[in-house]
Design a protein around this nucleic acid. Structure first.
Lengths: 121, 121
DNA sequence: CAAATAACTTTACAATGTAAAGTATATATA
DNA sequence: TATATATACTTTACATTGTAAAGTTATTTG
């Protein structure tokens, strides 16, 4: 955490933080052997164009490995997390957890409004 | 959660999800009686221009109440969460928690990489 | 063989985050 | 008491980027 800016959340990498890409990465970490273009499309509820561009961004950032091949006669793209991608995503998740702890743990955040919060029963 | 798109994370309201505004809201929920422009500026490590614009966005969305007055002879702006803002932020936090649970709870996310994860010791 | 479908990619646009410049007032300084 | 500097913001202009519509290539289907 930045010395004087406890709420700056520097670790929230923009490449990961974007909603659509957060969906993609979460999908991928739940499927270690990768997911096809169409599986991602429906899991994340993204249009073809969006998914294509977001996957490209993730690939350029080295977070996702994209494999283009053929399934029968049709092109078939598979995406999977790279080791670096997995690590960076984990780092991001740790920062997310800090956000949650800071916010949900605040005095003015009444527990009843955050039912299943971090604190175990 | 959307029926067929478990990883779409529809509840991640863009107005809140943006990094700088997430900082501002987290600061504000930790300070129920509000924060001044300058306090926010240093807590969130934002420039004057950024803070001004982001606060305006939050105000227009009805999440934050902005009070402009004078402290001695100098202008003094105070920001505080509105009740609606608090509720929406809580909703957002619940969705964030879903992200964390989906991701950190995934089989391929080894526990050691997420040290202080959701699961209690 | 024409039309439609599949699996993407490219492009163009609109939204938006950011920082530099601007404004207005107050205080310090020479 | 001018002049300069500081305070507390706001406005503007730019550059990035998320999004959807249109385009591409190949393959089925009627």
């Amino acid at each position: 955490m930045t010395a004087d800016a406890p709420f700056a959340f520097d670790g929230l990498d923009r490449v990961i933080h974007e909603k659509a890409r957060l969906s993609i990465l979460t999908s991928l970490i739940s499927h270690a052997d990768g997911l096809s273009f169409n599986e991602l499309k429906s899991l994340c509820a993204l249009t073809d164009g969006n998914l294509s561009r977001h996957v490209a961004v993730l690939q350029e950032a080295g977070l996702v490995a994209v494999t283009k091949g053929f399934e029968g006669n049709r092109p078939h793209t598979t995406c999977a997390l790279t080791p670096a991608g997995r690590q960076k995503f984990m780092d991001y998740l740790n920062e997310l957890e800090r956000v949650l702890k800071n916010a949900a743990g605040a005095p003015s955040a009444s527990p009843s409004t955050v039912p299943g919060s971090l604190k175990p029963a």
